[in-house]
Structure formats: C-alpha cells, structure tokens
C-alpha cells in the first residue's frame, strides 16, 4: 500500500517552557524537539501495515521551516522510505492553512491511506488531519486506537467518552491515530545510516495567508502550593471537614 504519514515537530513534553522575549512564542533555547507523540504512533502504524501487507511505500510529510528536515530524517530512520518537506518561512499555528498545504500535495499522490496524529500537544489541537480529509473529500476516522486494513477496506476502533465505536470505511482514507495502538520503534543504527541516503525533497508550501496568529503566550497562574494535612487514617476526619467547610464539595 501507498501510505502517507504527516508529522509535526514538537518540543519534548517534559520540557519546562519559558516565554520568548517578544511575548508571543516560547523560548526554544535548550528544548529538545522530536516527532509529535501521536504522529510517532502513526509512523509505527504505517510501517507495520506495510510490513504485514507486503510491498508498499511509506512517505512522510511535514509543513514547516528547514528544522522539520531533522524530524523527517528521524521518520526515515524508523523505516519510512522517503520524505517531503513543504517549506514555509516559519512555523504556523493555522491548522487549516497546514491542511491546505498538505491536501494540495497529497491530492495527486495516489495514497491509499493518509495517517496523522490525533492532535499535537503544542498548539493547534487536532485540526490538521480532519481538515485535510475534508479538503480531499475522502473518508476520515479520528482518534483510532486500533486499525486494520484488508481487501481495500479499513476497520477502526475509537475509544470515546465512555463508549467504544467500531467504524468501517473504504480507501482512500485519512485516519488520525490515538495512543495505545502501537509503541513507536527506536531507530536502529542501520536505520539511521540508511536514512541519510533516503530522498528528502523540499517544495514550497501552498499555505495561503495564515488567518490564525499568536498574539501572546503566557505561563498559567500557579496553583496555590500544595498542603499536606496529615498522616494515614487519622487524617481522614480533617479531610472530610475541609471538603465540607472549605471546598464545599460534600
């Protein structure tokens, strides 16, 4: 199968964030960047499908400045065959603009399956995949925690709010990947060496004018510092009293 995986470059989620001097971005000094978590599951899913189904091709896409090339190389070191950077001057927060750039490129690509992460933890909040599907006019299943492809058809499981849903769809399709589906593999040394020789193509992104812009970034107000009220069972009556009189939840 021909599978596309769309990747975002995001900082490590364990990072401590500081606000940049302009007040409208995070300070990137010292941050470690990688493929966004959900998209890294998507890479693993794509590789597993093609390993199982026999000969195919897995292609990674990223919209962004040259820093995304490192992210694309990482995907190739995991086993992705080739990569395409859709180049922009800066990172954009307009999810629909990213989807337009991706859709313009994917339209004629002949992909059977296009995978995304469910949402990136950094900024946009789960827009890129679904919007791309809509622009391409293909089936779209969001937040799949299981995915099977057989005979040109897909079956996906979605764990929703207290309900699990099993969906069936025909290909081509966009699927956005939830956690729990696959642990992303670590690149092997051989994979890292091979990735250096794999093709990484750069093309200008057809972004259009971004209409969502960051005006300000700030750190949230701190919670008041925590308080330990006591030890063991003996502290239970005091807790119940506080829940009743102070927190007023009992």
């Amino acid at each position: 199968m021909k599978i596309a995986v769309c990747l975002k470059r995001t900082p490590d989620s364990e990072s401590r964030f500081r606000i940049a001097a302009n007040g409208a971005a995070i300070d990137e000094t010292g941050l470690k960047f990688d493929i966004d978590d959900f998209a890294s599951y998507a890479v693993e899913v794509a590789l597993q499908i093609n390993e199982k189904q026999g000969p195919g091709e897995t292609v990674a896409f990223a919209v962004g400045p040259d820093s995304v090339q490192e992210t694309l190389r990482k995907a190739m070191s995991m086993g992705v065959d080739r990569a395409i950077q859709l180049k922009t001057d800066a990172t954009t927060y307009d999810g629909l603009a990213i989807a337009k750039a991706l859709a313009a490129e994917l339209k004629a690509g002949g992909f059977d399956l296009i995978l995304f992460g469910k949402h990136a933890f950094d900024t946009s909040g789960g827009v890129a995949g679904t919007a791309t599907a809509e622009l391409l006019g293909v089936a779209c299943v969001t937040a799949a925690s299981k995915l099977e492809i057989a005979n040109g058809k897909g079956t996906a499981r979605r764990e929703l709010e207290g309900v699990a849903e099993i969906d069936e769809f025909s290909l081509p399709a966009v699927v956005t990947i939830d956690e729990g589906i696959a642990r992303p593999r670590y690149p092997s040394l051989k994979g890292i060496m091979a990735a250096k020789k794999k093709p990484l193509e750069t093309k200008p992104a057809q972004l259009g004018q971004p209409r969502v812009t960051v005006k300000k970034m700030e750190l949230p107000p701190d919670r008041p510092p925590g308080r330990i009220i006591g030890d063991g069972v003996a502290a239970v009556p005091e807790l119940v009293r506080l829940l009743r009189t102070e927190a007023k939840v009992l």
Partner: peptide, 10 residues
C-alpha cells in the same frame, strides 16, 4: 503545550 502555556490567538 499540555496546559503549560496559555496562547492568545487572533
């Protein structure tokens, strides 16, 4: 950023 930063968007 997982609730660690609040963005104001236009």
């Amino acid at each position: 950023y997982a609730n660690k930063v609040i963005a104001t968007l236009q």
